[in-house]
Design a protein around this nucleic acid. Structure first.
Lengths: 250, 250
DNA sequence: CCCTGGCATAGGTCCGACCTCTTCTGCTAC
DNA sequence: GTAGCAGAAGAGGTCGGACCTATGCCAGGG
């Protein structure tokens, strides 16, 4: 195992024992009560709780007050926590997240285009259709309402279509961290263009053309970057970025 | 502040209070003892320790047994922890890490070529020279000795030259996680080629040619990927990967 | 001058008690 | 018979205090 794990501290042993326990347990299963588990591992409940807390922070466990502790599979949402604290210090975070997406997502879209199943394509189209209908319904309001948690984003579906890889996890992470900034700072008029660009990505994936998907994604992210830059300089972003997108589409 | 922070749990309040404390404290400063700090925040020492443990896991604090708790600035090393646990499950981790590096590092090398100062270049050349001498000294041994902690890797210097960005952090992270696998699974004969390829990258950065740096980095990573694939299939990697590198150099 | 030993202080672990929340159960009222 | 509420049971959350162990510092002896 990793050499960073061992140590003379009891809590590390407890954490490793717990990690081994969790590894062999099925997703969603319930752990024994803390008192019982502590006795079984030969440590105090305080120490056990410390170890549980660390694994919970890593997303391997979910602790529910009054109910129990459950085995979870870590995903981007859990990993977002450490990154969030890191990015809170940095005012450049949005542009850096976007830069990261520009490096990763074109490749991810290409992979998705090669691997997507019919079900993936159906889900992607449904997501786009949902975005379109949402756009129509709330086009006259300033604030976009809270999106339904059940509805997965285009990015997460793309990640699924490309296969759950490290790159996919990072893309999901960056997307989640960037989402609030985009919805706050970009004018609503931009959503129309963004949705259509995302639709183009989906269709490129649907017909299984990696290069087309890559190009469509690059175009989309370039547009977003331009818009964000314009907002940063207190300019009206609509004209310039829309012009860029239009020229590229022609 | 983040809405994920608040909650009815005492430990969350303590953690937030601590985070605020840490934010305003200078790097390297020492926190008050746990007993005192717990009383000051109005929570028990158990709860305070839980909060401290979480911030330590995020890399914002460093706890030293018998000494004290110190304020730290989070870096890639700290962020590596959650990722390490995530990647321990995945046997495909090395190839995925390498895939990530292939997406990020060429761009990073290009940026470094545009931004590197004379001091950066000097440090990069020194790092390469050190790798060369190390190669000579230990060329007849199987194991490469533990590298000096004071000596920074080519990657971390490149990150510094490119400016400390999110992409740089991720590259440093991937490099650190991948290092043990590479040193274990790649034959020692490969180090000679790798060092020379890295030297080419450094010289491209030195003369300020982004495209050359990008290309040199792509070549280096392609070679690594080929070699790793060959090892995975229990083949002798030297011939094939060296051939690829030679062809690309011609 | 260096080394060594011990003391003060810091974090690490344990215990046992109590609090709060969730769930389930069984009684009660309609 | 069913809907709804109250209580019990059991889970995690918090507490305070005791003791263990590692570190840093300083005095004393070589």
């Amino acid at each position: 195992m990793s050499q960073a794990s061992n140590g003379t501290r009891v809590v590390d042993q407890a954490r490793d024992a717990l990690a081994a326990y969790v590894r062999s347990a099925p997703e969603g299963s319930k752990l024994p009560p803390e008192r019982e588990l502590a006795q079984k591992l030969g440590v105090s409940r305080t120490t056990l709780r410390d170890g549980v807390s660390r694994l919970a922070l890593l997303g391997l466990l979910e602790v529910r007050h009054g109910d129990g502790t459950y085995v979870r599979s870590p995903d981007a949402t859990q990993l977002a926590l450490p990154f969030r604290s890191l990015l809170e210090y940095n005012p450049e975070a949005p542009s850096e997240l976007l830069a990261l997406k520009r490096l990763l997502e074109p490749a991810l879209a290409a992979t998705a285009a090669s691997n997507a199943t019919d079900e993936d394509v159906a889900a992607l189209r449904a997501a786009i259709q949902h975005e379109r209908s949402e756009l129509l319904r709330y086009s006259d309001r300033r604030r976009v309402p809270r999106r339904q948690p059940a509805r997965r984003s285009l990015e997460s579906l793309m990640v699924a279509a490309a296969g759950s890889s490290l790159v996919g996890t990072l893309v999901g992470l960056a997307t989640e961290l960037l989402r609030p900034t985009l919805s706050e700072r970009l004018p609503p008029a931009f959503r129309q263009l963004a949705v259509e660009q995302r639709g183009a990505i989906v269709e490129a994936i649907a017909i299984g053309e990696p290069d087309a998907a890559r190009g469509a994604m690059e175009l989309h992210l370039n547009t977003l970057a331009k818009a964000l830059d314009a907002v940063d300089q207190n300019l009206a972003p609509t004209r310039e970025a829309a012009g860029v997108a239009g020229a590229a589409l022609a």
